[in-house]
Design a protein around this nucleic acid. Structure first.
Lengths: 193, 193
DNA sequence: CGAAAATTTGACATGACTCAACTGGAGTGG
DNA sequence: CCACTCCAGTTGAGTCATGTCAAATTTTCG
């Protein structure tokens, strides 16, 4: 069960067997059915989770009730509301399973305990945050720079499996456009071909 | 000289006098004239810097030669290309001083040495990255959600001193709009009043 | 003072949004 | 097995915010 998880961790840092076992001890194994809300606005996000399988979306709903998807996560990805979790402040986000989802999660208190026992994990989590930062920066660039069409092409290139797993209107939400706009983009692309 | 710097660090973590002195030892004090390029695309970013005074911009130029400003930094802010620095990969960004700028900087090798001697600094830098992440996430939300006018209002509310220090077309670039658009937004806002 | 840079204004083009109607497939129940 | 409903996706018409290009004006600074 911890195989993929360990592999993920060791891309950042080698751990001894004892350390590794301590880590396993602190991470809780959970399975959630489809459409479970793991986090709601107002709550303090109390988990950092590694996905063993399944799929979750992290999104946000603005004043006009528009849902904007910030992130999809599938197997071997991490999910959390970093800002809320790390600073223990109320979140503005929803995190919701889109399929039955199995994950390994740790809460704030336990993570701090784990850090005390294996300080070099600070490094792993610093690197994880840094990677999230890079991904977000990338995302930000494309929103600022690229047209909706370019963003869509970029998306399918980067995550070719996702269009098969998530409905199109949610991809539109991820891209920051309306479902109608995405439908038109797809139509125009297939004409070009 | 290290007074503001120490205060900045200790918002994250208390350090002993010895630790503090070690930190000071590793950070280099530098002064750069206006319009100095601290980083160019293709280079690996080799600094993480704390601004004592002055002002820098971090930006990116796309295929169509449009400049998009990612961040302004002034006194008491940190600046670096996190992705490039942390992963030691070539950057896509420019970092440039907009005024004569005094800063404390550390390079990758020395930062690693410092971490070896004061491991708990891993924590400080993890928290710093987390804060950058939150700021970027905020930025991302507003770009996706808000109109150009709302983004501008948001900007002046958050950074009231910046419009006086940086030219308007660069603020437009930060907001992700053209200088003409910003000019019109300002005109329309002053009519409303 | 004069040149270069920044800002404003105007005219026009366009990408994406809204709202509404229509299509098609998936499930449900009689 | 068909009729019904529901929901995602598509298509059309009109609107609006922002972009582009060009010119005029103002500001900055050597």
């Amino acid at each position: 069960m911890f195989q993929a998880f360990d592999k993920n961790i060791t891309t950042y840092l080698e751990l001894s067997l004892q350390e590794s076992e301590l880590v396993h001890h602190y991470f809780q194994h959970k399975t959630y059915p489809k459409k479970t809300l793991l986090l709601k606005p107002g709550q303090v996000c109390n988990f950092e989770a590694y996905l063993l399988n399944g799929c979750v979306k992290k999104y946000y709903i603005d004043q006009d009730a528009n849902e904007t998807i910030l992130q999809f996560a599938v197997e071997d990805w991490w999910v959390s509301d970093i800002a809320s979790f790390c600073q223990q402040i109320p979140s503005r986000l929803y995190i919701e399973t889109m399929e039955e989802t199995e994950l390994l999660q740790i809460n704030y208190q336990e993570k701090e305990l784990l850090f005390k026992q294996v300080p070099k994990l600070e490094r792993v989590f610093r690197l994880l945050v840094q990677r999230s930062y890079s991904v977000l920066e990338d995302r930000f660039f494309t929103v600022i720079t690229d047209s909706a069409e370019a963003r869509y092409l970029n998306f399918v290139k980067k995550y070719p499996m996702l269009p098969q797993r998530v409905p199109q209107y949610q991809i539109a939400s991820y891209l920051g456009i309306t479902p109608e706009a995405l439908s038109r983009i797809k139509a125009s692309l297939s004409h070009k071909k």
